Amino acid sequence: MSKDKVVVITGASSGIGEASARLLAQNGFQVFGGARDPKRAHPIAGVRFGTVDVTDDASVSNFVEWVLSEAGKIDILINNAGVSLVGPVENTSISEAHKVFDTNVFGPLRMIRAVLPSMRAARSGLIINVSSVLGFLPAPFMGVYASSKHALEGLSESLDHEIRGFNVCVVLLEPTFTNTKLDVNAAQTEIPLGVYATQADATIKAVQAQIRTAPSPRAVADKILAAIDGPYRMRQPAGGQATLLSRLRRFMPAGAVDRSLRKTFGFGKRSAS
């Protein structure tokens, strides 16, 4: 069955996108990988790369039209392209925040709008939006990135209700920190840390320590394959730690969750007001 399935993956030249493209191709899917610069992508047997900048309407339209002209359909869209940003919310400029949202929220929206007409016509389709545990948890000094993932989750859940009647479904995939260039080389806000420097440095060190022992992109790719082949669930944490965090968020008292998160991110006890 997978040999008949056409998959489109954005951000396919590295990290989770590259690992997913390789794994799906190995499992017989027809894979079209989107990248801003396909020349920088490592060749993968069974994967055809094309140019797509998810922040550009024309680029998205041209890419999707190319896939449809080559394959005749798109069965699965994996919105994986993303950018990160580290720094205090107060120090984040509107232009920096706009750049994050343009890729992480408006990028998936552009891709969704481009592929949905053909999926609706076929009355079949699956859209996988790669979110994060930061889509349901806060992340100090990653506030704009976390808010973009929160926004993606709201968009995805609303969309799922709208298109279910056309036999098209949405999956929210929620990895925890993953050992990729996105997490390791996250951009930092241009304004110096200033009064936040001490705590921000401690938090960044705590996060980097987690990334060093974090799952590889292949672990997330395995979860994507399982989401395609397995029983449908809209919200799917990727991995044991992500599943645990999801359950803690839902069932633990708010105060306990707050204390656990502050400890994880290198904070001391909350000061008395």
Rank of each mutant, 00 (worst) to 15 (best):
N179P: 04
S14A: 15
P108I: 11
Q241F: 14
P217Y: 07
G33H: 08
E162W: 12
G125C: 06
I76H: 01
V83H: 05
D56V: 12
V83K: 13
T92H: 07
M1N: 10
P215G: 09
G33M: 05
T213G: 00
P253W: 06
A25V: 07
V105C: 02
A35Y: 08
I127F: 12
I44E: 02
V105E: 02
R123Q: 14
D75V: 04
N179R: 15
I224Q: 01
A12T: 05
V144K: 11
E190F: 00
K223M: 08
D75S: 06
G107R: 02
A25N: 09
R233S: 12
L24R: 03
L134P: 00
A238G: 11
L155N: 04
T198F: 04
G46T: 12
T213I: 12
R164D: 13
I224E: 00
G107P: 01
P138L: 07
A219V: 11
A209S: 14
D258T: 12
T203R: 07
S271E: 14
I163Q: 09
S147P: 10
L85V: 05
D229V: 10
G33N: 05
G165N: 13
P38Q: 06
I228H: 01
G230Q: 07
T264Q: 13
L109G: 01
R212I: 10
S147I: 04
T178A: 04
A200R: 06
F106K: 10
A221E: 01
A254K: 14
A25W: 08
G154H: 13
R123A: 11
V170M: 09
V47P: 03
K149W: 07
L261T: 05
D57W: 00
D229Q: 15
D57H: 10
G82R: 02
S273L: 06
T176G: 15
M252W: 14
G72T: 06
N62Y: 08
V170P: 00
I191L: 06
K99A: 15
